[in-house]
Amino acid sequence: MSQSCAPRVRIGPRVSWRGARAKAIGWQLAVLAVAMALVATVAVQTAINLRARGIASGFDFLSRPAGFEIARGLFSFSSRESYARALLVGLLNTVRVSFLGIAIASVLGLSIGIARLSGIWIVSTVSRAYVELVRNTPLLLQLLFWYTLSQGLPAPSDALNPLPGVYLCFRGLFLPAPIWHDGFPWIGVEAPTLAGFGFQGGISISPEFAALLVGLSTYTAAFIGETVRGGILAVGRGQIEAAAALGLSRPHALRFVVLPQALRVIIPPSTSQYLNLFKNSSLSVAIGYPDLMSITNTTLNQTGQAIEAIALAMAVYLTVSLAVSAAMNLYNRATLRRGGGA
């Protein structure tokens, strides 16, 4: 959105300049006083409560051993390691699912946005139905749905085997992993083998991760699709006519004339969608994927230090959000200078 013509017109009877200034300062002091009083009361009461319940304060707990395991994942974590490391692992998991989710959602969203504008009725209607369906149901419900589907898969002993070395069961998706021998690019492939209650070896993708990834990607893709559609429609009609008059085919016109101009309109709102995906990854708590939010939850349950744990999590999410917003502002200013859209 354009910078505002925000009228800061002073409404009201004209007061003498010095009088107005005094009033302004007075109001601000009053508001600040009230705010501080509120904070102080709460703080005092909280301190009393914490002492009464024997809950520690401060961030020392971070260096204590966590005492819980984190389910298999990219990063190993044993119960002897510290809470701090546990939270770090959680954060890395959040970043992992967010990055992948954003990548998939972008590609999917772009396709959906273009599909919405297709001249083939079936394509535009089906993509429209998809967008409406996904946008009008809660994300949590979709995540639970995908997770439930994964749990309906057969047991490891009866796992689906669509391709050699690829197994799909309710414990997850198992893929063959490349092995490096002394620095040579992969000489062999290690296939997963049935062992006990699950599979050993190979790359495993947990159903929690898969459900979260699929749910987040499909949900965000719907919103990005609408943004893409709006961006393309925002490109002036004359642009498409000029491209057509020059003999450019529809795909060429889209690629060289429409999309470059549309992207300028698409990128800012898409960035906020990406941030939403990042924040929505916190729903992992409901599925059991050990990301930052889940591990924060476990930590505060075990240590009882809710304030520190939640504040820490909020700080992390907030830092990322603000950093991305700042970057987006810089980008906006840069494009405006370059002599942007139509």
């Binding site: 709460v42 009461q45 909280t46 009393i48 409560n49 914490l50 009464a52 809950i55 924040k279 929505n280 990854s281 916190s282 729903l283 708590v285 939010m293 924060t296 939850n297 505060l300 809710a306 304030i307 939640i310 999590a313 909020m314 999410y317 907030l318 959000s321 603000l322 917003s325």
Partner: peptide, 26 residues
């Protein structure tokens, strides 16, 4: 506004579930 919009809704619900009882008088 920026703080509330920059964090997931989930964190506020956790606040509600776990932190608010700590703020209230005994």
């Amino acid at each position: 506004i920026e703080v509330v919009r920059g964090v997931p809704v989930m964190t506020f619900l956790f606040m509600a579930a776990v932190m608010f009882p700590l703020f209230a008088p005994q």
